[in-house]
Design a protein around this nucleic acid. Structure first.
Lengths: 207, 207
DNA sequence: CGTTACTTACACAGCCCGGTGTACTTAAGG
DNA sequence: CCTTAAGTACACCGGGCTGTGTAAGTAACG
């Protein structure tokens, strides 16, 4: 047979190993956690020999870090770039998550690895900081009186909703969205721009 | 020597093993996490032979569950019972946490164990539900328009602050407290009782 | 064809983990 | 004194883990 068998994702079995490994990581780390997923099982699911896995990632720690890095374009995919929404609507859109959303992988990794010095933990910290900054930018764009404060507050709400969705399985994101609406309204009521007009003035300048 | 050596906690070395084991669990699970703490190390720190540890707890899983159970009187020690505070003040007092507060052990356990069916995970769920109920009761006592909603919201804020204190190490509890103040004021402004008077009417009735 | 780069199968080393078996020691209490 | 309850020391088992060594296979390219 000149053509090799095909994996469940339709990829060739010889090539593209790296992608399949990262893809399997995404599934297994989410479903079983990082610590409870061994490299043997991971390789099996990725349809890659363990030897190959270690040729692409020098250690499991490195794989975990790379696994987290892959989420950047994924998490909150286009929320901040949706020009069809007003800044205010964009802030609220960050809370529209399906009830089955898994725990934010950055939080999961930081808690599971339990070492603040681990590259993955550092990356999680950076990511959380970046998200807060994005929220702050959008809050400023919306005309909030104290954008830094509002950004930090909304970030906290998102994390709270994420962790409660995991520990309990209540509809925590709608609870968080309700709080967000109150905070946003409070922050905008004493500002010039009001809801219901397309985005216009002051496209963020300091970032 | 008729009297045995004394451990770091002043307890006799032969007796009181169970207490020392739970005490060591508290320290090690907090500092290293559950998964990264082995029974050998735990026994050593507790100054107890591993054999004795397994005579008190039939498995590590059982120890973890018992370890969580020990927090009931600890976490939020008297906040809900402080009659010197008005209900409103009690709700806000729940956010007065030192900046070095470790991640809520129930969240940590649920994330680390990663099995919703694990006894410890179930217990964590029960605990979180109970805390929300306590907050709801206090919110009702304070005269909130929608006590269930406010209780759930405050519970989410606490968890968000807890997890962000761990992942970043910002002063998230003060951020959460600021949000809580807004939510509480919003929920009470259309209610009869106002801030600044000692607790009086309607000591909780339905619990 | 041969070379090059990648992948595979499989065994294995070394470690830590949860948990147990065994035989011994010690304090308390009648 | 003897009994009983509790703890101790220590070796050990089976299993899973990360990571490696080795030798063979295979596609692509010239």
């Amino acid at each position: 047979m000149t053509e090799l068998e095909r994996g469940p994702l339709g990829q060739r079995r010889g090539r593209g190993a790296r992608e399949r490994i990262l893809s399997a990581s995404q599934q297994l780390f989410r479903d079983q956690g990082i610590n409870r997923t061994g490299m043997d099982q991971l390789s099996a699911v990725a349809q890659v020999s363990k030897r190959t896995a270690y040729q692409h990632f020098s250690s499991k720690d490195e794989l975990v870090t790379e696994y987290l890095r892959r989420f950047d374009p994924d998490v909150m995919p286009g929320v901040f770039d949706r020009t069809d929404l007003t800044p205010r609507e964009r802030l609220l859109a960050a809370f529209e998550m399906p009830a089955s959303t898994p725990l934010c992988p950055y939080i999961a990794a930081a808690v599971e690895l339990h070492d603040p010095g681990h590259p993955a933990s550092r990356y999680a910290r950076d990511y959380k900081t970046a998200i807060a900054a994005r929220l702050t930018d959008t809050a400023r764009e919306a005309g909030a009186t104290n954008p830094e404060q509002l950004g930090e507050q909304l970030a906290l709400l998102i994390d709270g909703a994420s962790v409660r969705t995991r520990v309990l399985d209540s509809e925590s994101f709608s609870t968080a969205a309700a709080i967000a609406a109150v905070l946003i309204d409070n922050a905008l009521q004493s500002a010039p721009s009001q809801a219901g007009h397309t985005e216009s003035l002051s496209t963020g300048g300091d970032r």
